[in-house]
Simulated scan of single mutants.
Amino acid sequence: MREVGAFEAKTHLSALLEAVEAGESITITRRGKPVARLVPVSEIGSAERDDLLRRMAALRGEIAAHSGPFTAEDILSARDEGRK
């Protein structure tokens, strides 16, 4: 499994997606720590997919409950943080 940094992943996303379509799995790191994994869709089982969807919904609920709606400033700040 190949590892790439977040900056490289952002810069070369199209090429990474082509590699994943060809069957490769890629780990994305930030400051040397794994933070995400790109895998072909066929590798994700329905139970894992359902679990991920449940976790995403729960996280969405937590964010909404604790912080209220996002402002334009919040969104721009998150965008800018991702560019570092």
Rank of each mutant, 00 (worst) to 15 (best):
E3F: 15
G5C: 12
G5P: 01
A6S: 04
A6P: 00
F7G: 06
E8Q: 00
A9T: 07
A9W: 07
K10A: 10
T11C: 05
H12N: 07
H12I: 02
L13K: 06
L13V: 10
S14N: 07
A15K: 14
L16H: 01
L16T: 01
L17G: 03
E18V: 12
A22G: 13
A22D: 14
A22K: 15
E24S: 07
S25T: 15
T27H: 00
T27C: 01
I28S: 09
T29A: 10
T29E: 00
T29R: 06
P34Q: 08
A36P: 06
A36N: 11
A36W: 09
L38H: 08
V39I: 15
P40N: 08
S42K: 15
E43Y: 14
I44V: 15
S46V: 15
E48I: 14
E48A: 13
R49C: 08
R49K: 12
D51W: 07
D51K: 12
L52V: 13
L53T: 15
L53I: 14
L53N: 12
R54V: 11
R54M: 07
R54L: 14
R55A: 11
M56P: 00
M56I: 10
A57L: 12
A58I: 08
R60E: 14
G61K: 04
E62A: 08
E62G: 01
E62H: 05
I63F: 14
A64I: 09
A64F: 06
A64N: 07
A65Y: 03
A65M: 02
S67E: 04
G68W: 11
G68Y: 05
P69F: 05
P69L: 11
F70I: 12
A72E: 12
A72Q: 13
A72R: 10
E73H: 02
D74R: 03
I75D: 00
L76R: 08
L76A: 05
S77Q: 04
R79Y: 04
D80P: 00
D80V: 02
G82L: 05
G82T: 02
R83Y: 05
R83Q: 09
